[in-house]
């Protein structure tokens, strides 16, 4: 809530300073023309796939199976050490080279390589989320699984009814953080030609900039920021709502 007020005050203050005319700015606030929906589409793909994969890998890293643990740790080490922009280009370029070599229809190549860039981001955030999930699972005290063992609940079931619900509750705040940073990472997709928020804004703003309309450029970027804020806000609020579902009376964590 505080964040919303700050954001709005910031924008209004810029208006008061005469940076731009607020009424004009509001009149050109057009999500459909600034790639907002494309960003939403990409986010809607990255968040669930990144989380699903991150969850599985994080879990794999806590099992007794050495091979699973090893694969998980190689995955995490690799994807965490790469800057997301480099990953996007690797996927985009390798995909493009291979598909072209296979004489794929050029239209298809474009579509597939664009989405490969999205996949790169999903795999990247999955690595971070895997670490969060792993830490969550490991932070459930061993007494919990021991108690489940002692009443005869099988290992697998214990995972689902004891460990994961507790691990999930502990991991949610960190997952919310990672979600919001992966939303903002989608802005890197403009580099391979996505016409999402940043791509479109960059195009619009540089046209204004080159023709001397610096204020107009600024407005465009402010609006882009505003749209990112909306997406991030919705997602982090949703995570908070889920946190409330998993809240345990007597164990509430202080929140600002």
């Amino acid at each position: 809530m505080v964040a919303v007020v700050f954001g709005l005050l910031f924008i209004i203050e810029l208006g008061n300073l005469g940076v731009y005319r607020l009424s004009y700015a509001l009149s050109i606030l057009k999500p459909e023309e600034q790639g907002f929906w494309t960003t939403l589409e990409v986010v809607a793909v990255i968040l669930p796939t990144g989380f699903g994969l991150g969850f599985l890998i994080g879990w794999a890293r806590t099992t007794r199976f050495v091979i699973l643990r090893g694969l998980g740790s190689v995955y995490v080490d690799f994807f965490r050490s790469m800057p997301p922009i480099a990953l996007i280009f690797f996927f985009y370029l390798i995909g493009g080279i291979e598909l072209t070599r296979a004489h794929t229809n050029p239209y298809l190549v474009t579509t597939v390589t664009l989405w490969l860039g999205v996949a790169a981001l999903a795999l990247h955030t999955a690595a971070y989320q895997a670490e969060i999930v792993r830490a969550g699972i490991l932070s459930v005290p061993s007494g919990q699984t021991e108690a489940a063992d002692a009443v005869g609940i099988s290992r697998l079931r214990t995972m689902f009814v004891v460990t994961l619900p507790q691990a999930f509750r502990l991991s949610l705040p960190a997952l919310g953080n990672e979600f919001s940073s992966s939303i903002k990472d989608t802005s890197l997709l403009y580099a391979i030609g996505w016409t999402e928020l940043s791509g479109v804004s960059y195009g619009l703003a540089s046209t204004s900039f080159n023709t001397g309309y610096l204020y107009a450029s600024l407005i465009i970027w402010l609006e882009a920021a505003f749209f990112y804020f909306i997406v991030t806000y919705i997602v982090t609020r949703t995570v908070r709502a889920v946190e409330d579902v998993y809240k345990v009376p007597g164990l509430e964590v202080a929140r600002q």
Partner: peptide, 26 residues
């Protein structure tokens, strides 16, 4: 373990479940 119950020094109740649900789980 169904035949032999165990009570621990640190209780080890399932922290995310109410007293009733702790007893119900198994």
């Amino acid at each position: 373990r169904q035949q032999i119950g165990m009570v621990f020094q640190q209780f080890n109740l399932f922290t995310h479940l109410s007293a009733k649900k702790n007893v119900m789980l198994a």
